[in-house]
């Protein structure tokens, strides 16, 4: 348990009457890209701000890289990188001067690493922060989050406002971070970016963790949507599928039978083959649909 990058138990945060985070138990193993998914107001930012010590838990506790986030905040800060959802710096400092300022506060930041990141993201360090576009400000935020080679980086909605080219650089930086054994936690409400980047996802909703799963496992367990048309346009398929527990949401319209399948397709194909299948269309249900089903069911 101690070697987890993040370990929370019953972590909760209340703002006035609003319970922003409701007793979250979470373990994030090191060497992973971990995504927190959920709509706005789900508690993702609250979670991250608790983990970086900007908020005090109302109850419960959390350890980041083995250090308690309340009692040992500075030790946590020394080893993490953080990008706030609403990253802001002094408007009249140049990007370069601001990064130098933060390096001074951190101590021991490798100038070469910083310069490499600045070049990688195509950031002009001579421009003052106030004159930068949102996307360029975000680049400053990304450079400072990674420049000291932190063991854990927590990024709140990191790809907001980044153009596709920079997003690709970002993805590479994140992967390099993971490949060197470090951990990245990022929050997002855009599933597609997470699908490509993350090893593990946790879905949050109304301050709670509703699911925590391996992306690869999710894919294999993911459902397929199937449409079958027989040569004689009959709905004999319905009879053939009876008793199969992996099949759900069956419907027949004008001789086209559609249904969803969870897991293996083998038994279904065996049963359908003798019926004279003219058309068979199978599409993978993506995480987006899966994601929506988690939200849709409970509302």
């Amino acid at each position: 348990m101690n070697d987890a990058a993040i370990h929370t138990s019953g972590l909760a945060k209340q703002f006035g009457d609003v319970l922003a985070l409701d007793a979250v138990d979470l373990d994030v193993q090191p060497g992973l890209v971990f995504a927190l998914l959920g709509p706005n107001g789900a508690g993702k930012s609250t979670m991250i701000r608790l983990l970086v010590g900007l908020l005090q838990p109302t109850s419960g506790s959390a350890r980041v890289l083995g250090h308690d986030i309340v009692a040992d905040r500075r030790a946590v800060h020394a080893r993490i990188g953080y990008l706030p959802g609403d990253f802001a710096a002094d408007k009249d400092l140049t990007a370069g001067a601001y990064l130098e300022y933060l390096s001074g506060l951190r101590g021991g930041v490798d100038v070469n690493e910083r310069t490499a990141l600045i070049e990688r993201f195509g950031l002009d360090p001579t421009k003052t922060f106030g004159t930068l576009s949102h996307g360029n400000r975000q680049k400053v935020g990304l450079v400072q989050a990674f420049m000291h080679r932190p063991s854990l980086v927590l990024l709140d909605e990191p790809t907001q406002g980044l153009d596709p080219l920079v997003q690709r650089e970002f993805a590479e930086v994140v992967r390099a971070q993971r490949d060197s054994g470090n951990t990245v936690v990022l929050s997002s409400h855009v599933l597609s970016e997470v699908q490509a980047l993350a090893d593990r996802v946790a879905i949050m909703r109304d301050g709670r963790l509703v699911m925590d799963a391996d992306v690869e496992e999710l894919r294999t367990a993911a459902r397929h949507r199937v449409e079958v048309t027989l040569e004689d346009r009959s709905d004999r398929v319905l009879g053939a599928l009876e008793g199969l527990e992996t099949v759900d949401a069956v419907s027949a319209v004008d001789g086209v039978v559609s249904f969803t399948v969870e897991g293996s397709m083998a038994e279904i194909l065996r049963r359908l083959a003798p019926l004279g299948v003219e058309r068979f269309v199978s599409s993978e249900v993506d995480l987006e649909t899966l994601f929506l089903s988690y939200y849709g069911n409970e509302r």
């Binding site: 970086v52 010590g53 900007l54 800060h77 020394a78 609403d86 933060l102 506060l105």
Partner: peptide, 14 residues
Amino acid sequence: ESGILAMILTMPVH
């Protein structure tokens, strides 16, 4: 209020 302080307070300084 302008969000600048939060960043500074996540640096390893008391």
